[in-house]
Amino acid sequence: MSITMTDAAAARVTAFLQKRGKGVGLRLGTRTSGCSGLSYMIEFVDSPQEGDHVFEDHGIKVFVDPKSFLYLDGTELDYAKEGLSEGFKFHNPNVKNSCGCGESFHV
């Protein structure tokens, strides 16, 4: 399995990385926190960590640490607009339920 991203997400990530002017890719991960147990993180990567799973999609390197990968395998990253708000969205097949706001989830 792997981590993928939609065209919309890839276009935004490429643009953000370009404007930022540095960084080798994107880090997706999970943290144990939030109202339902786990929450997502999405960061720029300047230096990869040892043991990272590395995926490449649309020419963008995606780094995921081994522990997070357990919860993220098969995830597709999307970029969406909802009303005035816009941002990234995780389509994660592992999620059983999430909290009302969707910021944290449970597997």
């Binding site: 880090r27 909290c99 969707g102």
Partner: peptide, 17 residues
């Protein structure tokens, strides 16, 4: 679900924060 933004390395905050 909530829409997320990319943050600088190491700057991820807890949800709702």
């Amino acid at each position: 679900m909530a829409l997320l933004q990319i943050v600088e390395p190491g700057q991820t905050t807890a949800p709702h924060q």
